[in-house]
Design a protein around this nucleic acid. Structure first.
Length: 532
DNA sequence: ATATCAGCTTC
DNA sequence: CTCGGAA
DNA sequence: TTCCGAGGAAGCTGATAT
């Protein structure tokens, strides 16, 4: 783990991506394949399951350092990261001895996870007393599962490409789906062919926000238009008689959607579909919240499947009869998808095209978006290839105008990480009678300069403190933009905003001019009565 | 047994 | 998902 | 231009608190 710890510190300490890449290349050139495989998986965000919970970790740290728990707690509040706090507090190791990365991840951490309470504390103290000081931080990060390091996935890909002397595109493709950190990983990454049994998805093509005036996109006939569905992006892969469904975060979500898996079982091998999974019942498409009940589940009961039926609206055909179609223009892929549509069935159907040869026609369709329960329109250039990432000019998302509300700043809290010195986290409220009630939290939307100006104001106008939270005078008004609203039991106001962000700092307005809860409740009534 | 919270995912 | 900032 | 890290709301899981 010596090399890996050194790599971590380089990545963590530098912001130059060229520097990071060089460190990665050097690491891959020198690390044993078994360790390198784990490094790749870890750096790509595939973290080991959390081995020890935070409470136990604190207890073990208290025992090893001899410090009282409250002091560790206090230190943690200042540092903001438990793994780092403990790494800083631990005494020097007795007889420093490094542990290979693969040994740590394959043996030590699983053993730790299996142990009982006393066993965990005992093992932790023993490990800490042997680990060289510069490896403790990395160890603790792996331990808490909170391993997040400032490397772009792209940097890892390019470093691997340079090290293995192959195309970066290929590496990116090989790293899709689950990464198996076995000794053969590096060989597979460099291989010409994708492994025969692979059910891995392709890198997702993402969309950009459309320009303010839609005409700037050029000729409307150059685009295919579809509704922008409010569901979950997914790729469905059929190969070797098996079906896999992948989320955008590259999670295998197949077990969550048995009806989609079954519907896809009739498809020919070598089929890859891209589309949106939606909650959809007899009434039509349902809000995203309904779909959420099907997500992140351990088990999907038949009752739940009946309560929240799903379907996948397919908008792209990426592989057909085993042939990769991603370099073909969208219009061709779409045509081919339509031809295949007869085989898709009820749960799996093509996303309908929205007809319109000019912007005026599309504009009038766009205006129906809210009442249809969709977020707007997607505009996809007919000649576009399905390349990875977010290339400009290919796919545009044309979202309905957000709602806005003028809110008063009620509470502020310090941010995390680099923003931990500033009060950047705002709770905002509206009037309910002559009292202000919180409706949302937001900070995004202010520039760094505005944030520090607000920070100064907050410090000078604090009226009360609750732990890390400061209550402030009602003196600042912000215009908050949001995409929609739902009833919520978590907020005193009974309302939760979706994607709240600060649109404008209304220094021209006094708190009395802020909006009233009544207005949001009316909006909720209006939005709630819609049936898609 | 039930409530709450942190940590994960989706958007 | 949103946004601002950095490379 | 593209990527990243900062942030929000929701629901589910698993652990702890009552």
């Amino acid at each position: 783990m010596k090399r890996f710890a050194a790599l971590f510190h380089t990545l963590d300490g530098s912001t130059r991506s060229s520097h990071k890449r060089a460190a990665l290349v050097a690491y891959f050139a020198s690390a044993p394949a078994r360790d390198a495989a784990h490094a790749v998986a870890t750096l790509c965000g595939q973290r080991p399951r959390r081995a020890v919970n935070a409470t136990r970790l604190r207890q073990a740290a208290a025992q090893r350092t001899g410090l009282p728990l409250w002091l560790i707690e206090e230190t943690y509040h200042h540092v903001g990261d438990l793994a780092e706090t403990i790494a800083l507090l631990l005494p020097e190791p007795d007889h420093p001895q490094s542990i290979p990365l693969h040994e740590l991840l394959e043996r030590r951490l699983p053993a730790l996870a299996r142990a009982d309470e006393a066993g965990q504390i005992d093992q932790l103290c023993r490990l800490w007393s042997h680990l060289p000081a510069d490896e403790r931080l990395v160890f603790n990060k792996l331990l808490t599962g909170g391993f997040r390091v400032g490397v772009a996935r792209q940097s890892v890909i390019h470093a691997l490409a340079a090290h293995l002397q192959v195309d970066a595109e290929r590496i990116a493709a090989r790293l899709m789906g689950r990464i198996e950190p076995d000794p053969g990983l590096m060989d597979r990454l460099g291989a010409d062919e994708r492994p025969a049994d692979s059910l891995a998805p392709y890198p997702f093509l993402l969309a950009h926000p459309a320009p303010e005036s839609i005409q700037d996109l050029g000729d409307a006939t150059d685009y295919l238009a579809e509704w922008k569905w409010d569901g979950m992006r997914a790729q469905l892969v059929v190969r070797n008689g098996a079906v896999a469904i992948w989320s955008r975060g590259e999670d295998d979500v197949t077990p969550l959607f048995p009806e989609l898996r079954d519907a896809a079982a009739t498809l020919a091998d070598g089929t890859v579909l891209d589309g949106e999974i939606l909650a959809w019942d007899a009434r039509g498409v349902r809000p995203f919240g309904d779909l959420q009940r099907r997500l992140n589940r351990k088990r999907v009961s038949t009752k739940l499947m009946a309560d929240v039926p799903v379907r996948m609206l397919v908008y792209d055909l990426l592989e057909d009869a085993g042939i990769d179609l991603r370099d073909q223009p969208l219009a061709m892929r779409r045509q081919r998808l339509q031809r295949r549509a007869v085989h898709l069935g009820e749960a799996l159907r093509p996303s309908p095209l929205v007809e319109g040869r000019d912007w005026a026609t599309l504009q009038s369709a766009f205006r129906q978006a809210r009442e249809r329960g969709v977020e707007g329109l997607m505009l996809k250039h007919k000649t576009s290839r399905y390349s990875s990432g977010r290339p400009r000019g290919y796919w545009w998302k044309w979202k309905v105008e957000p709602y806005t509300v003028d809110c008063v700043l009620l509470y502020a809290q310090a941010g995390h990480g680099r923003r931990s010195n500033l009060y950047t986290d705002y709770t905002l409220g509206v009037w309910s009678g002559d009292a202000l009630v919180p409706v949302a939290k937001a900070y995004s939307g202010l520039t760094d300069e505005e944030l520090s100006e607000m920070d100064r104001w907050i410090r000078r106008h604090t009226t009360d403190r609750f732990g890390p939270v400061r209550a402030v005078e009602a003196g600042q008004v912000f215009e908050i933009a949001f995409e929609g609203l739902r009833p919520s039991s978590r907020h005193k106001s009974g309302i939760a905003l979706r994607f709240p962000r600060i649109q404008r700092w209304r220094q021209d307005k006094s708190p009395e001019q802020a909006d009233h809860l009544r207005a949001l409740q009316d909006l909720l009534q209006g939005a709630g009565s819609q049936t898609p």
